[in-house]
Every structure is written in C-alpha cells, then in structure tokens.
Design a protein around this nucleic acid. Sequence first.
DNA 1: ATTTGAATATTTGGATCCAACAATCCATAC
DNA 2: GTATGGATTGTTGGATCCAAATATTCAAAT
Lengths: 222, 222
Amino acid sequence: MLTQSVVEKIKGAIESGALPAGSAIGQQQLADQLGVSRQPIRQALPLLIAEGWIESLPNRRLLVRELAVAEIDEIFAIRRLLEPVALAASIDNASSAMLRRMNFALTEYEEADTPAELESADVAFHEALYSCCSNTTLLRLIEQLRRSLKRVYELKALSRPLHKAAMAEHRKLAALCKQRDARGASTVLIAHLDAAQVALSKARSAATRKVTRGRRPTGNDA
Amino acid sequence: MLTQSVVEKIKGAIESGALPAGSAIGQQQLADQLGVSRQPIRQALPLLIAEGWIESLPNRRLLVRELAVAEIDEIFAIRRLLEPVALAASIDNASSAMLRRMNFALTEYEEADTPAELESADVAFHEALYSCCSNTTLLRLIEQLRRSLKRVYELKALSRPLHKAAMAEHRKLAALCKQRDARGASTVLIAHLDAAQVALSKARSAATRKVTRGRRPTGNDA
DNA sequence: ATTTGAATATTTGGATCCAACAATCCATAC
DNA sequence: GTATGGATTGTTGGATCCAAATATTCAAAT
C-alpha cells in the first residue's frame, strides 16, 4: 500500500527537517515530491493530522506542526512516568536475548560515526531496554512519545560531551540490568531523561535565539 | 470535512456494537451504510487502522479488531500510572470551575436513567477530574486510553450494584478534591480503576463463556 | 497612497473510473 | 466422490475528473 509508505516518508521528512516546522504544504506539492498521485497523500493526511505531525488550519491550509517548548516538557513528564515502569518490568522478566541486544546496541552506539548511526543505535538500545516489559501497548506508547520528539533531536546531535554523558549513562543502565537492579536502573533512567530534557530545551532556546536575532549571542559552536 | 465525521461515526458504531468486534467490513458496505461515497471511507481507514479500531488482514480484508483480555489489562496498567498523576496535578492547581464541573457531572450521574446518560456523565466527571492537570498531552493520552475501552464498557452497563459502588467512589473523589487531598484522591482513584478492571474482566469472561457454550454456566444476571 | 472590490488562479474535497488482485464457483479429470 | 484448474465475480488501490471554496492579483475609486 502506497499510503503507508507515504506516511512514513512524510514523517521522515519532518524528522529530518526536509519539511521544517511551520512550513506550509499542499497536497499536490507533496505528491510531486514523493512521485505519487494525490490519492495516497489524501489518505495519509488524516492520520498525520491526528498524530500531531501536521496541523490543519481553519482556512484548510496545512502546515507542519511546531512543537512548543511546553509540549516537549509535557512529553518528558509522561516519559518519566512510563519508561521507568517499563524498564523495571522488563528487568523483572529479562531474557538473555534482551541483554545481548542491549550490549550490541551499546557497542553500536560507541562505534557510531554519523548522527544517523548514533540515532539508530540509541533507538535500538532503548527498545532493547524495555523489550521484556510484557506490555506491548505500553511499548507502543513509549515508542510514539520518543518518536514525536525525534524531529527536535538532531539539534542535540551536535554536542559531543552530551553524547559522552549519554553513553556513560547507557553503560550504567546496562550494568544495572545485568544485576537485575530494577530500582537502581529506574533512578538512572530518570536522570537520563532529565539530562536529555535540559539538553534539548537548551539547544532549542539557543536555536530560537539564533533565529530571532539572526546569530547566537555568545559561545563558540561547531 | 466528511472524513472526520466518518471516522467518528465508525468509532461510534464500533463502540455501540453496531459493528461487532471480529466482523468483516468492506469499503462499499460502510459507504452505503453511512450514505457517503467510498472516498471519505478510504481516507478514514488508515487512521482507524493506526488507532487500533480496525485490523487489516494480509488478504487485504478488513475486520473490526477484537480487544484481547490481555490488552485490556495492559491498558488498565497504563491508566493506573497516568491517571493518579493527572489527578494529583489537577488538584494542585484546581480551579473553582473544576469543582463546579465535577459536582455537576456527579449529579448528572446520579440522575441518569439511560446507559448513554450514565456513560456521558462518567466521561464528564473524569474529564473534570483531570481538567486542571496542565498537561494537555497527558489529557489526550488518558482520553484515548479510556475511549479505547469504551466499546467493552456496555457489558458493564448492566450491573446495578457496580454503578452504585462507582457512584460512591466518585463522591469520595469529589470530596477529596474539595479538601485538596491529592494523595488520598490518588489512592481512591487507583481503587476505582481496579474495581472497574475486575468488573470488566468478569463481565468479559462471562460473555465469552456465554458465546462459547451458548449459555452462562451458573449465576443469575439481570 | 491606500483601500475596496471584482476577476482570476489555485487548491481542496467528493465522486468516479479503471486496472490489478483475491476469493469464490464451477467444470472437468482422476 | 474428491481434487485440481480455470473462469467469473467482487473488491481494493491508485489515478483522474469536477465542482466548490479560498487565496491572490489587479484595477479602480476615494
């Protein structure tokens, strides 16, 4: 079915920044860009609107939805509730396969060169972390929340020290999983989430300032 | 937009049992039934599939998705995580409007005659409960989870004593909100959810037995 | 120069068309 | 009588058509 692939491609374009937040889009334009007719686009749109990727203006214009800072915080608040529970449950009935998957993702993360590799290794690690939580609805929910943040993540993909820190936290998590210390792992996970949140909001406010003033106020990047 | 109303109508039909779980459906059939052409149906389908209302078989047949007992339990597990937090936050910045809405829904619930009125009063009460939680993403999520269970709720709509119990719990919740006792309210809410869960699973297993054997093994209903 | 209004152009949403695909049904062969 | 193969029917998915709604442009009037 073309519709499904169109949905994924549009999501990918939004995540990658090819369709920047706030930009207006038309059905025909999307269709041309993806090399399909308008029909699959039209089937994809209601889904994308319902999932919050695209906003439908009253003028029946469409634009890529912006994620407000407040909304990012809201999502993190929910993740803080759900992910520690998923992790604890996952540790309780952890399989050896889970530990293997975790370790694999860990090394992938360490050896990643490109931001894309980093990203996919990170996703793989967290998926492995929760994989044994035996609540697939919860898994889907967590995945959805993480993905809705993804389009803001590439900002973060620049900073080296943050990745170092994240890697250390991942290693700590893996160790605690091996020891089956659900309580300890949850604590570390919450810290991990908080760190990601402040990193994100910092990167975002910096980016906003950049846009507003045309240039960063201070500090060397790159 | 017709599509949106088609989505709602199909959801409603599934919730009301007009489209029973497990039944096969065709696009043309749906279109005829709703008095529209196939086009709006086709735009609605990807959304309904993604949200788990309809299942798409590999043979490209469609059928109304069944909710497995395990899945119901999963949803309750998530609700137990989210709703107490939403309630506590809502109590912390409760407005007088919230208390008024709660009380109104409470009396509506008490005076309800038909199952539909009961249902809507219940929804209104819980919406009022969480309305001040200041996390709209969380609110949407909770609403989605509650609604996904709605189609199983009408089974429960029969038993009188259960409603009495639910009403008492609602009153207790309202009182605790008025006293701004977030902790106590959360505890009662969890008990409320648990009660609903066991009631649901009992009703469901009874219904399944009924279907399987053609009649209930023991016990008087009605 | 600014604003109002009409004419034009673009875009959307619903309906329809058509080809590909899957299931069903029937006939024939074993 | 059963099983296999083919024809037929029905349904889906993508493309296209058309009318209605909206934005845009351009001209005229204040």
